[in-house]
């Protein structure tokens, strides 16, 4: 799954779609993602009116509500710049599910399809579109990577994130057991079926910790919150970091402005 922009040109401008979770719960990760794009000489535009991709209602079976919210987002990206999303599942929603959501309206469907073509998950965008070449400036570190299910299965993020981390010689990435298995977040699933969701989150936390890594890295705020808060409840200091934040730290780019 190697995608470039529809035009194949390296963009000068991009839209940044932060997602509601990043906006409210992981804003630092959002800032770091923006830094990573800006330091490649690309201007990042943050449409002020963005809210949420609509996924929570969509996956709960509230298609009309999801459509309304999705439509409000679709209007934000007037120019044909790429839309970069620092979350695999929200990127997957916009790329794969928007066209389905508007399947019955030919005009909106065409619009959704055109948008889908230029939606990129952050690590995919850095790797395949910006083709970043990095110099690691951090101390040797061992981390493990957790990729959200939508990111893995809809966006191929496990491959992209791994390739980015592989550019950093000081970073040793270890693999947890049952790597491809879901962490149990699943949006409203974690609220509707707390016991099953908790069992999954607990197993995931165990598997990540058993790697002996000093932290786990994830490109998805939802999984990260799920696993981190599970670990916190256990009183465990082992925590996850957003991929963007980790990368910024390694590149000593934190807070840097292009």
């Amino acid at each position: 799954m190697q995608r470039d922009t529809p035009s194949g040109q390296r963009p000068k401008d991009v839209y940044f779609f932060a997602t509601c979770l990043v906006d409210l719960f992981c804003p630092e990760a959002g800032m770091d993602a923006i830094t990573l794009i800006e330091r490649e000489g690309v201007t990042v535009h943050f449409p002020e009116n963005q809210t949420c991709c609509g996924q929570p209602a969509y996956t709960s079976g509230y298609a009309d509500e999801a459509r309304a919210v999705a439509l409000a987002q679709m209007r934000l990206f007037e120019n044909d710049w790429p839309v970069v999303v620092p979350s695999g599942s929200c990127a997957g929603m916009m790329r794969h599910h928007y066209p389905k959501l508007f399947a019955e309206d030919p005009i909106l469907k065409a619009k959704a399809e055109a948008l889908a073509e230029r939606v990129f998950e952050l690590s995919e965008f850095l790797l395949n579109v910006l083709k970043v070449q990095w110099k690691d400036s951090g101390k040797p570190a061992t981390v493990t990577l957790h990729t959200s299910c939508a990111a893995r299965r809809e966006m191929g993020t496990h491959v992209h994130a791994r390739a980015l981390l592989a550019q950093l010689p000081g970073v040793n990435v270890v693999t947890q057991s049952h790597e491809a298995e879901c962490c149990g977040f699943g949006g409203t699933f974690s609220l509707k079926h707390p016991s099953i969701s908790s069992a999954m989150a607990g197993d995931k936390a165990d598997a990540l910790k058993e790697t002996g890594a000093e932290a786990f890295i994830s490109a998805d705020c939802g999984c990260m919150l799920n696993i981190n808060h599970t670990l916190q409840k256990r009183g465990d200091a082992f925590q996850g970091k957003h991929l963007a934040t980790f990368l910024c730290e390694r590149l000593a780019a934190k807070g840097e402005k292009a």
Binding site: D23, S197, A201
Partner: peptide, 19 residues
């Protein structure tokens, strides 16, 4: 269901748009 096995979720001190 969230706090069944997790600490409560809390919004960050400033949202991304504020930052």
């Amino acid at each position: 269901g969230w706090t069944y096995s997790r600490t409560p979720l809390k919004p960050a001190a400033r949202s991304l748009r504020d930052l």
